[in-house]
């Protein structure tokens, strides 16, 4: 039996929407840059779930390949992002995004 035919594709849509919103809220809520990065990972995974669900629904492996690519990009992003955070910590002694206010006139 196919899970999608049992719970409906809409359930996956709700799940993804909720996960994505939690991610967004986390980005807004927290000031620690590392946790913001993790929230971004949450958002990416919300999208991943949808990709896989639709891939199965349409019987098309392209969606799963896309998830594979997203994971790869996320890994690269996290590697660079964390490197930047380390650099930032080294220079400013904090990873609080409120300490970064030089980006203005």
């Amino acid at each position: 039996m196919n899970i999608i035919s049992e719970v409906g594709i809409n359930s996956y849509l709700w799940l993804a929407a909720i996960l994505f919103s939690i991610g967004v809220m986390g980005v807004l809520f927290r000031r620690n840059a590392i946790i913001i990065l993790m929230c971004i990972e949450l958002m990416l995974n919300a999208v991943n779930i949808l990709f896989v669900a639709f891939s199965v629904m349409h019987n098309n492996p392209a969606g799963q390949i896309m998830v594979f690519f997203i994971m790869a990009v996320a890994a690269a992003e996290v590697a660079v992002g964390l490197a930047i955070l380390i650099l930032m910590y080294r220079n400013m002694g904090s990873v609080d995004i409120d300490t970064m206010k030089k980006l203005k006139w």
Partner: peptide, 8 residues
């Protein structure tokens, strides 16, 4: 004034 530099 809008451009505060605050990423949040």
């Amino acid at each position: 004034q809008i451009q505060t530099g605050s990423i949040g």
